[in-house]
Amino acid sequence: MAIAAGILTMCAVYLILSKSILRIIIGTGLLSHAAHLLVMTMGGLKTGAAPVIKDGVTQYTDPLPQALVLTAIVINFGVTAFFLVLAYRAYQELGTDNLEEMKGTDTHD
C-alpha cells in the first residue's frame, strides 16, 4: 500500500510539473488521493472492526486518520473546484492554458 501511495505521488508530481494547467489540476487531485492513502496507511491498516461502536467488539480501527481524511476529502473537493474555475477564468481572460505563457511581466522598475 505504501508503494501504491508512493507511485501515486510520483505520477501526481509529474503531472503538476507539466505546463498545461489542466494536467496540473488533475495532478493535484491525484496528489490528494495519494495523501489520503498515505495517511490511512500510516494510521495502520485493518487492525479491527469499523469504528462504529457495537456490543462485543473491542478492537476498532483507528478512527482518527479516518476523521482527518474525511476532512481532507471535502476540502480537496473545494480546492479542486476552485482551481478548475480559476483555470477556466484564466483561459477566458488570457486565451491560453499554458503556464509558461501566463508568466507575469513583473519587471523591476
Binding site: M10, V13, L17
Partner: peptide
C-alpha cells in the same frame, strides 16, 4: 520532471 517526481514518490514510500 520524471526524475523529481520519482524522487518525491520514493521518499513518500519510504516515509510510509
Amino acid at each position: 520532471n520524471a526524475a523529481i517526481s520519482a524522487l518525491v514518490g520514493l521518499s513518500v514510500t519510504l516515509v510510509a
